[in-house]
Design a binder for these strands. Sequence first.
RNA 1: GCCGGGGUGGCGAAACGGCAGACGCGGGGGACUUAAAAUCCCAGGCCCCGUGAGGGGCGUGCGGGUUCGAAUCCCGCCCCCGGCACCA
Length: 812
Amino acid sequence: MAGERVETDEGRYDYAQVERKWQEAWVAADMYRTPVAGNRPKYYMLTMYPYPSGDFHVGHWYAMTPADTYARYKRMRGHDVLFPIGFDAFGLPAENAAIKRGIHPRVWTMGNIDRMRAQLRTMGTMFDWAREVVTCQPEYYRWNQWFFLQFLKRGLAYKKHAPVDWCPSCQTTLAREQVVGEDRRCERCDTPVIRKDLDQWFFRITQYADELLSFDGLDWPERVKAMQTNWIGRSEGTQFRFEVAEESFDVFTTRIDTLYGCSFAVLAPEHPLVERIVTAEQREAVAAYTSQATRESDTERMSTTRERTGVFTGAYAKHPMTGQPIPVWIADYVLVTYGTGAIMAVPGHDERDFDFATRYGLPIPRVIEGGELPYTGDGKVVNSGPYTGLDSEAAWNAIADELERRGIGRGTVQYRLRDWLISRQRYWGTPIPVIYCDKCGIVPVPEADLPVILPPDAEFRPTGESPLLHDQAFLNTTCPQCGGPARRETDTMDTFVDSSWYMCRYVSPHDEAAPFDRLAADQWLPVDTYTGGIEHAILHLMYMRFFTKAMRDLGLVSFSEPALRLRNQGIILGENSEKMSKSRGNVVNPDDLVARYGADVVRMFLMFIGPWDQGGPWNSRGIEGIVRFQQRLWRSCLDAAAASGGAHPADAGLRRALHQAIARVSGDMDRFAFNTAISALMTLLNEVGSYRDAGGNSGELLREVMSALTRMIAPMAPHQAEEMWRRLGGSGSVHLQAWPEPDADQLRQERVTVVVQVNGKVRDRVEVPVDAPEDEVRAAALASAKVQAALGGRPATKVIAVPNRLVNLVVG
RNA sequence: GCCGGGGUGGCGAAACGGCAGACGCGGGGGACUUAAAAUCCCAGGCCCCGUGAGGGGCGUGCGGGUUCGAAUCCCGCCCCCGGCACCA
């Protein structure tokens, strides 16, 4: 660790030499090995592991620099810190790139990982590489398979024939979460998805729908919580039965108070009952409508601007309250995938039902007072038999009670959340560990036979069928139960399975007996602070929460949430405030920046731009300010190392500025306000400059100040701080030093400046002894000519005094 | 439509209900230099008065309110960004 001194050119800081030297020294000293079973409090800092796309762009730097800075800060604050890294190495881009270049996805992926590891080292990050996790390796993905088998045993994994979303470009099914926007596009490639009916594997995330709505005890951004809450989409309502001759169907409604206003019912065209109740006269029209509705894409069907259409089935249901026959229609505005796939239509109090009734001449009764029809608000219930006169809420409860008493209805909760479709018809993923036997049916691969290895030589080009289907050696196997010939499942898992539990793998990344070691998990987990992009607000972050709850119910962990605190970085835009992209020509390459400015400057500038969750445009001139700061810092350091003067009248002021800075920077670091932490350090350095200008040259004080400043800047500029620490005579690594503590005594001043207001307007400032009694402050204020002028001879009727800050004189 | 986050100088931004604009960028003035770069110093919201030191008014998207005092809290709007949406 005892690095040689770097020769400097007339005091100019040579970042290239210093950074190279310390990066090598840190590796040699194994600086960032995670402590094993320390007696200091633990801190698990986690940043979302990157996808090995080939090169880090400046957005990765923006994401990772504060995470690294915070991990370093927590270590200096006395914690044992776990700060691991790995690669999210399965997934479509590897296949696509491999197809384009004719190389194997593994070769492409592992080559990228090598390059990205080197880039991460140039950032000066303190990742513990001994714990690196690469998800495309069998040592990792075997545990995906193991989890799948545990889920299967518990009914948390199941196979179902269902209408699913298919991306025609990626040639695979997708989870509902991977279909985005009003026009339902593939999250990855932006192609509109189509609907297919397929047998697919699902994880039963809906079992945790209610629990996923609770964020108690979590310090997560409001927008992430809101997005997940929206996505889960909980509605409380009533489910009840309509009878149609010998048949019946259930409907779900959130407005049971409007039941008397139900003048017809609507089934989704795909509803299984349609075929059984349709009358002979209507059969042809219904069949025509249904086949057209199924042929239409979701985009057309979901359009809110189109006319509502439907067809009468010829059947009548019995209104559960009035006993009146009401017509049963089919219409594509009722979705088979939500609720029961059937609704009671209340045209007087629902806009969609109103439009439909208007178009087809159905009656539109009013049962709630207020407004023009359709009136969708609450109010007094009318035309509702015995419930007439109640307000909506009372009627809601009373009608629901009656339905329940009569055994035809009950209060239920519906969620928009769907189970997580994990099957993918692609090559580069974890094989699903299931075997199909003609005799025994679906047979799980025995745990002892894991991992089911992804065959390295399969033809991986996408065809719409699973590539593994064409790999005979993989496909054909024997049944673990009867020993007869059998076939393997050829779909692979969604890569979001990999990232749902990787935070656990880091605690014991080489464990061969279990996905993770229970003792190590109890020591480190859950994650204390998790950082990453907002784009994962629903996908990864919800899946990870689901997995954690499932792991808890499997008895694997004792906590219910994976990460206690979440912080999302914003997006760094190009200099023209547009999204960075090659086609726009506004991409900022971090390697070029590091070559030109050094890692420390890039790190500091990215944190100085503004609040981290806000992102913002790159500013190639702004970075020069950080370069100047770096050089000033360096000169002040050399200066302090050489200073030999004694005590000076300005000492107290500088010492106070130091302790103010310590208090400020500590608070800013705690709350992830890196931009203001850096400005506080700049202010302190400016104070050092003023002290020198005033003639101060106390060697002892300057070294004390610069030592604290060096330690405070160490998490942000790790290389320069390490070099400065040596120049100031420090021993050991600066990164193993204790964070400076503010000293309240040093913050005390003899005299303070108090603002004097008259009627809330600032009129003057007076200097008084610290903690001066109110009388004295008031007297000083009244002694001011400016204050007297503002008072204009009127006496103060009221005096508000904030000690050491402000006095406000109120006149009539 | 529902939900969440925003709106402060030329720009990026600061500000436990208590001096709005810290810190930095850019531009302006000056020092050093033959000159430039680098570095350092000064001024720096807008408007008005004053030759000047200085003084006054206005000012945090808009309109109200609470308060001795509001960028900050409350009510009602406008605009921008993000999420959800024929979800019954």
